[in-house]
């Protein structure tokens, strides 16, 4: 069981992802509504993993990813975005994201990505 932080500006997505992760045996320790909120909650909660949306107000997910990885080089972050273009995926992976899940996704696809990232060193 891993402690996971969910960051997505859509309340609906936070609830959906939380349900999938909880049913998958994980614990959701926090929810963030934008990138800035995610960076702040990451520092306070020190979760094992972050599920990070990209299109969010105030600070987008790619900027939040850079800040989180800058604070902790071994941070495990999975991007979870409706934007699936190669350029975004490359930027995210290059910045340090462990995986990239394009919305919409199936619960299994999300859990597989989470379990793969958790198994990484």
């Amino acid at each position: 069981m891993a402690k996971i932080l969910i960051a997505d500006d859509a309340m609906f997505m936070r609830a959906s992802i939380k349900k999938i992760l909880t049913e998958g045996g994980h614990e959701v320790v926090g929810e963030a509504e934008d990138g800035q909120d995610a960076v702040e909650k990451y520092a306070v909660l020190a979760p094992d993993l972050v599920m990070l949306d990209i299109t969010m107000p105030r600070m987008d997910g790619l900027a939040a990813l850079a800040a989180i990885v800058n604070a902790n080089a071994s941070a495990k972050v999975i991007m979870c975005s409706a934007l699936g273009q190669e350029q975004k995926v490359k930027e995210a992976i290059g910045t340090g994201a462990r995986d990239y899940v394009v919305k919409p996704f199936t619960p299994q696809k999300l859990l597989d990505a989470v379990n793969r990232a958790l198994a990484m060193p």
């Binding site: 859509a10 309340m11 609906f12 609830a15 409706a82 934007l83 273009q85 919305k103």
Partner: peptide
């Protein structure tokens, strides 16, 4: 509020998938 969020996210998902196609 939750229903509004769901429908808004549908718009986000369609748009995100569409710009992925545009990028091609």
């Amino acid at each position: 509020e939750m229903a509004i969020s769901a429908v808004s996210e549908l718009g986000n998902m369609i748009s995100g998938n569409a710009v992925m196609l545009l990028s091609e």
